[in-house]
Design a protein around this nucleic acid. Sequence first.
RNA 1: GCGGGUGUAGUUCAAUGGUAGAACGAAAGCUUCCCAAGCUUUAGGCGAGGGUUCGAUUCCCUUCACCCGCUCCA
Length: 569
Amino acid sequence: MDMDKLVSLCKRRGFLFQSSEIYGGLNGFWDYGPLGVELKRNIKEAWWQDMVRGHDELVTPPGAPSAYEMTGLDSTIIMHPQVWKCSGHYDLFHDWMQTCRQCKRLVRADHVWNMIKEAPWALSFAETLEVTNWGDKLRFNSLRTLQWAKNKGRKTAPNLAIVRNPEVTLSWLSEDLENNPNLDLDLPTLLQYMATEQKAQTGLQTPCPHCGGDLTEPREFNLMFETHTGAVQTEESKTFLRPETAQGIFVNFKNVLDSTRVKVPFGIAQMGKSFRNEITPRNFTFRSREFEQMEIEFFCHPSESRQWYQYWRDRRWRWYQDLGIPEGRLRLREHDKDELSHYSVGTADIEYGFPFLAENEYGELEGIAHRGDFDLRSHMEGKLVKNAEGCLEVEMVEEEGGKKRPKWKGSGRDLTYRDEATNERYTPHVIEPSAGADRATLAFLCEAYHEDQAPDEKGEMQTRVVMKFHPRIAPVKAAVFPLVKKDGMPEIAQDIYRGLKKKFSAFYDEKGAVGRRYRRQDEAGTPYCITVDGQTLQDKTVTIRDRDTLEQWRVKVDDVVEEISQRVS
RNA sequence: GCGGGUGUAGUUCAAUGGUAGAACGAAAGCUUCCCAAGCUUUAGGCGAGGGUUCGAUUCCCUUCACCCGCUCCA
């Protein structure tokens, strides 16, 4: 499917518009039009109904370790700044990045040296100087270095200063070695010299892992939107728009426990807007700066957490299929150990083969993460990091005088849980199915788009664009037409329309040829069209036309609402 | 953030240093008894800002947005 076709249909029919379009648009922000808002709302309501309101806490669902309760929450977008400091977002979302002045590539400042250590050019140079250990003090061999620069260096690191201008670059090193015979020269330091052409002006440069060019100073990329609460804007008043809804659930964990009589295991669900100042919003609404999440934090006993993780992974995997995405278009991907987030002991992504991606590439719809007790403990104890043994402990910073204190102090509140039956007290583990509402909407849009052939009035085949939404999420459930605008047909059709509207979104249209009206509804994805015709006047039946098969059948006027209700729920 | 490409009507596309066209779509009317029909009529556009010029949608600069590649994606 051609993405451009979908984008223009979304614009034309009112599914999605660019935000602030009359002013030229704003990168990373999208508005939902009249049809889009119904579609997205139906998706969110399906999620809420299936996960929360419709959940039966009295029986054990297939695949679940036990029965469980579900409850909802709606927390604020702006929260106490300490929430983000303890959650890790404040530190993690302030990425320091460096750009290569030569090849223009962007690299994370804290990754640069690890990347250099694996760069082919650096490895080959280390070999030339017979360096096996990067931190070791080394003997500098100017002849071998020059030879390397002229041969292997030229091929593998073309932008390295010593390759571009060996004489000038080497002169700085010789000068420093003369002035300071005890100069501690290890490989990283030597590589810096080799990346530096004008040391007097620039100081020692860091080489680009990709091409050897010199990198800019680290610059801060802040992925959290900042704002201020209160009229006076100071460092003290700085607050953040939430980059995820999850933290609102964790900080309300105790409130929910104290107010609802829920027992572990149970889940708290929340839908809402989140904000991330993405470096590169791309691919229609797939990566937006303002987006909506549908998140569940499921609290369980640590000993059962793996089973619950599997339950939620499979449950959520099936949900997308139940709403019409075939299994073959989806991928369930378990993260590798080294890919896991700092808190997670297991994560799976549910991905969809979006048409803007290459063949066999998939984009994330939802992540199901086993977060352990990281979040609740963080909000009790303070920001946690993994220590050398791989255990979580409070991150400490050293004050003047060598005293240590927590980097970000937690709330100090007791967020543990006591099991009344066993009298055991513990910090629950958390399974987090975190879905993107806009990504799901986009996936359903992509999946719905079809072009097929349908005959026109003359019997010639014409291309028909039809959005084959699952009836449950279709923006409009049924449209009602009088076949012609006379003989009392409009009045009957309007009565039917009013009856339908009481239960779900319906559309009435009496303008133009009926074929045209059918095609319009095809593009909107309306699953059923009801037509009042001459026979209606005699036997009080109407036709119902199926969007996908184009089949028509007759039902009694009085049965229309019931017939459509059954088919769309 | 970098490099390349593209911005003309709701959509898809033309043309032009001197009044911007088409198709489809939309609206109104007539006609129409089942899949974009016909006839009549109507509305609607050069992404934004600046410069060059007698005059700029066209040339130049800046900016914004979209697409592709790089980078990033907790």
